[in-house]
């Protein structure tokens, strides 16, 4: 049974919520700009998922970084790793159905889980806004079994009905051919959404403590199903907070790190 903490901070809530999406005995990958997801994966390993295999974009498996890096490309993610492969080999594994979870986000996410990391505007030659690029997304979104997104700044601009450019295709008919999986969970600063594959809709799974349903309705650009009884996101447990502070992030970077990603 979870022993909920009475005092916890927003960063601890988000990190533990992300960590709880991960199951033991699974293979999890974090990509290019994912320090919050990195902490969540390390927390899951140190609590309920001791046999989770953590793959970083540097190719290391189960690193134990000496410091909490702000970039997931920091060479501290080489520290004390159990093993390593190369970055394209992680995707080779995924192509054969050998990877479970990837954290993958979008500047914009739509109702089908399509992600836009490329451009805003109609003309790809002269975009209004040039975004950073989709990294490994276009194939990852279907080669991994579950895609989990952390999307801070919950707003109608980031959670949209339809993205103007599909960098990585979610659950749409145009994404023909076989896939091992796709978009599953979106954690925002206000709530948790989950895709329902039988209705092909996004369900509101839980709302974070202190958030009103009205707020989520107002700030979300895509339609979503609201369950009859809306539950509150479980706060972090005392154990999770203790493990974060003593094992996963002893240098206490998580607050500034979460602030930096928001």
């Amino acid at each position: 049974m979870i022993n909920p903490a009475k005092d916890y901070s927003f960063d601890e809530l988000i990190i533990s919520t992300l960590a709880r999406q991960l199951e033991d005995e699974t293979r999890v990958f974090t990509g290019v700009a994912s320090p919050v997801q990195m902490l969540a994966t390390l927390l899951a390993q140190a609590t309920h998922a001791p046999n989770l295999l953590y793959f970083t974009i540097l190719g290391t498996i189960n690193p134990k970084p000496h410091v909490t890096p702000f970039s997931t490309g920091d060479p501290h993610l080489f520290d004390n790793c159990e093993n390593a492969i190369t970055f394209p080999e992680i995707f080779d594994l995924a192509n054969n159905g050998r990877m479970d979870v990837a954290f993958l986000g979008g500047v914009q996410i739509d109702q089908f889980g399509n992600l836009n990391m490329s451009i805003i505007g109609d003309d790809p030659e002269h975009p209004k806004v040039r975004l950073p690029g989709g990294a490994g997304g276009p194939l990852m979104i279907r080669s991994f079994r579950r895609i989990i997104s952390w999307r801070p700044n919950h707003s109608q601009r980031s959670l949209v009905k339809q993205v103007p450019f599909i960098t990585s295709p979610g659950w749409i008919p145009a994404a023909k051919g076989p896939r091992h999986g796709g978009p599953d969970v979106i954690v925002t600063d206000l709530c948790v959404f989950q895709f329902n594959r039988s209705t092909n809709r996004i369900n509101l799974k839980s709302i974070h403590p202190g958030t009103e349903l009205r707020q989520i309705k107002e700030q979300t650009g895509f339609p979503f199903a609201i369950p009859a009884k809306v539950v509150t996101t479980e706060p972090p447990s005392k154990k999770e907070i203790e493990v974060l502070a003593t094992k996963v992030d002893p240098y206490d970077k998580r607050k500034s790190l979460l602030k930096a990603t928001s």
Partner: peptide, 8 residues
């Protein structure tokens, strides 16, 4: 592997 559906 197939990644149709991407505007890339």
């Amino acid at each position: 592997p197939d990644f149709r559906g991407s505007d890339l």
